[in-house]
Design a protein around this nucleic acid. Structure first.
Lengths: 150, 150
DNA sequence: CAAGGTTTAATTGTGCACAATTAAATAATC
DNA sequence: GATTATTTAATTGTGCACAATTAAACCTTG
């Protein structure tokens, strides 16, 4: 009872790309939500947490360097960093030797968060419940995708 | 030359969870960007495209059903669907038999997009450059994560 | 050293994403 | 059948995410 004038196309959601891209999109959002209970205690969002991860390593970074590491532009970072500045977690100042650049420096209150956040990765790993093998495979494939789409 | 009073913690970004969660977060955003050139031609965003994928299959769905499939709540969907309604891709009306529900129905202009979008999945697959084996493994692992975090 | 080009952030505007609240309709229970 | 509880969308408010533009500082090259 299918009229030849309206050929039923392949079930669109069953298309291979959609079977991968939607789960990736959804998993990313679920993951952010999984962090939420831990980050909320620290009044932190996931992107802000990523900024701190980098500052805990380097103490001082330019906006550009942060943007390159996180693949985020100044349109995202500038207001985010201003919010973090207001909470005294970091400072923002122009580089005196090159006024184009803005130096983001970790402040004591931001350093203090490190100890309070150090348990988070372990909690997340537990939630994910991946074997070591699965973990490595997934990381590798995500890296492949990042490389491909870079 | 390391003072014992400041024990250097494990490089935070090297923590296992961060080596997985950040790539997942980044890959998801890169993927959305990879769709952009194709979707832009159709004046469509990625979440709007996902709504259409479902409507191409079902013609009419409630907001609740869309939300369950896409893991999005009315706070996200209501304004998104209103924008799509304005473009005449779909209609929104209360279910007469249960006024709590809003029925989203595909309109002709929304149906027309199906033919214009049908090449997109193949283009994306090409960009991802995954072998069939990698593809299945990745899909399975993302599914695992979605299940774990559900 | 002046003109033109490049680099770096900030700004502007649009569109998710989601928590929390509200409000209306329906269902359940007494 | 009125009371209470549940379901469903909409609303409100905050915070990304990103394209496009702007503006200042710096660099280059003639």
């Amino acid at each position: 009872m299918n009229t030849p004038s309206t050929p039923t196309p392949v079930n669109p959601m069953q298309q291979l790309a959609n079977q991968l891209c939607f789960p990736l999109y959804a998993a990313s959002r679920m993951l952010t939500k999984a962090y939420q209970p831990y980050l909320q205690e620290l009044e932190l969002t996931y992107p802000q947490y990523l900024v701190l991860l980098l500052l805990w390593e380097h103490e001082e970074l330019t906006v550009k360097a942060l943007g390159e590491q996180l693949i985020l532009d100044s349109g995202t970072l500038t207001p985010l960093l201003k919010r973090m500045e207001q909470k005294q977690w970091l400072s923002r100042r122009r580089d005196p030797t090159d006024e184009r650049m803005v130096l983001i420096r970790l402040l004591p209150a931001g350093r203090d968060l490190q100890a309070r956040a150090c348990h988070i990765p372990k909690q997340l790993l537990k939630k994910l419940a991946l074997t070591s093998t699965e973990f490595d495979a997934l990381r590798g494939q995500l890296q492949h995708i990042l490389t491909q789409l870079a």
